[in-house]
Every structure is written in C-alpha cells, then in structure tokens.
C-alpha cells in the first residue's frame, strides 16, 4: 500500500521538478528582486524596499511627499487596450478560418493545420522584420503600386497603430485558430443540421448552436492571445516606431537602460497578478454554467 504511494509520488516527481525549476523558481526570484534596492549600475543590493511598488503609482516630491503619477498606469491601460483589440480581431479572423478547416475532409485538414503552424518555424523577430519590408515606404507593396503609376509613399503604413495591430494579429493568430479548431473538430455537425431542419436560419445556427459548442476553444484562444499580447513589445517597437511605450518595452527599459531592476521586476509581477486576477474572475463567472461541450 505504502509502496504504491511512494512510487506514485516518484512518478509525478519529475513534473513537480520541472514546474518548480522552470516555472516557480524564476517567478520567486523576480518577486524577491522587486522587493530589493536598485544598484545604480544595474543589479540589486540585498536590502528590503517596497519603493518599486510605490513608484508604480506615485512620485516623490522634493519634500518626500507622494504625488499621484499616472504615467505607468497610462502605459498599462494602453497595453491592455491593445491586447483586447488584438484578441477581438484574432477571434473575428480566426473563427471562420477554424470553422472552414474543421469542415474539410480529414486528409486536407491535416495539411491546412500544418500550414497554420508553419510561421512558427521561423523566429518572430525575423517575421516582424519582414512586415517592415511589406509596410514601409518604397517597400514590397509600395514599389508594386509605383510600378503601375501611383506616387511613392501611397502605401506607407510603417510606424502607425494599424501596423502594430497587423503585426500583433499576425503574430498571435495561430494561437487562436488552433484551440478553436480543436473544439470545432470534435463538434457534432449533425446538431447544426438538426437546427436547420427545425427552421433556424443560418445566423441562428451560428449563434445558438455552433458558438456555444465552440466556447471552450474561444475561451482558450482568447486567453492564449490576450496574455502574451499584453507583454508584447517586438511589434509595437518595430512596427509602431516606439513613440509610445508598452508594458513590455517599459520592463525592458527598466532592466536595460534605466538600470532599475526592482521596478522592472515589480511591473512584471503586477502584470502577472493582473493576468491571474483576470483568469480567476473568468473561472468564477463560468463556474455556474458547467462545461459547455465535451463534458459528457
């Protein structure tokens, strides 16, 4: 009896080990650093301070009194807003794509899914640079337009908000399509047919049958897109021109240029706490409804 318990424990030990080393430990280090004192030349001094968390909302006046400072809050709100828009766009584009793939014959489905994953074979930085070449003045598109008589700079989207959104949606779309496909693929399409037989029009079928069945995939996809989008900084920096800081670039700036590791760590921890809170709220809200599909 005891022996089976021990071997069961040993069986899961590697999993705990991996989670501990690669998941929990780095986070604990970040948490520790966020409560230390910044070394002026980078790194930290081993002394306790919660100044980093105060700095997030307040700034110290000459007489040491605290004044509310919305700079960092602005950056957080901008990042959250951008992530929300990215998620919505990914959902709007990704849902029809996933649906289309799920309705294909099985052999073709595998090929299409493979195509969706192909971008991952190359580094994101390189793919984003490719977008610079596409979106810039005299770039791939602009040059073609010029060759048919348009003026130079007719198509010049680089360093605009549109460019940032294109870059983000492009980067994270596969994270939306794959979970959507996973739940649509399992779906029993006879249910949709049955709804049609019962005189539901197309919109009603989509809204009342397909969407509820796809819900787990929608939720998973939205989380997988929203969470990394909040911290994204490659697309905002390279395609947006870096005129406005995002959370990711703020954290990077604190570690690399400002040499304020505790503050950088504190912002990361706050970001993580925010994401966790969002997940908890989501879990709470969903609890009463039971599992929509695949739960039987």
């Amino acid at each position: 009896m005891q022996r089976t318990q021990i071997s069961a424990w040993l069986g899961v030990a590697p999993a705990w080990f991996v989670i501990g080393i690669f998941g929990v430990l780095p986070m604990l280090i970040m948490l520790g650093i966020s409560f230390m004192v910044a070394d002026p030349y980078g790194g930290v001094e081993p002394a306790y301070s919660h100044e980093a968390y105060i700095q997030f909302l307040f700034e110290r006046d000459l007489d040491d009194s605290l004044i509310f400072n919305p700079i960092y809050l602005n950056i957080v709100l901008r990042s959250v807003g951008l992530a929300a828009i990215t998620t919505a766009l990914c959902l709007i584009v990704g849902l029809p794509v996933a649906y289309f793939i799920a309705r294909q014959p099985e052999s073709r489905r595998d090929v299409l899914i493979l195509l969706i994953t192909i971008p991952f074979w190359t580094n994101l930085l390189i793919r984003t640079y490719a977008w610079i070449l596409i979106l810039t003045r005299n770039g791939v598109v602009d040059a073609r337009l010029q060759s048919v008589g348009f003026e130079a700079g007719t198509f010049d989207l680089l360093y605009t908000n549109t460019a940032v959104l294109i870059g983000l949606v492009y980067s994270y779309l596969p994270f939306m399509v794959l979970p959507l496909y996973a739940s649509l693929e399992k779906m029993d399409f006879r249910l949709a047919e049955a709804a049609s037989d019962l005189y539901a029009n197309r919109w009603r079928v989509a809204w009342e049958v397909i969407l509820p069945l796809a819900k787990p995939g929608i939720v998973a996809g939205c989380l997988l897109v929203f969470v990394p989008s909040i911290g994204a900084f490659i697309a905002p920096d390279l395609l947006g021109g870096g005129k406005r800081m995002m959370l990711g670039s703020l954290i990077y700036f604190q570690f690399a240029t400002a040499r304020n590791w505790p503050f950088g760590a504190a912002v990361s921890i706050l970001l993580m706490a925010f994401v966790m809170l969002a997940l908890l709220v989501y879990a709470r809200v969903n609890k009463g409804q039971g599992l929509p599909a695949g739960g039987h």
Binding site: T136, R137, G153, D237, G242, K243
Partner: peptide, 17 residues
Amino acid sequence: VVTYNSENQNDNLANGT
C-alpha cells in the same frame, strides 16, 4: 518624430521614411 529607433535609420533615410 516618425520613430524612436536606433536600428533602421539607414533604411529609413534611403527610402525617405
């Protein structure tokens, strides 16, 4: 300012960005 950027200045100058 069109961009705060320390990498693409040569390309941007060349193509008129």
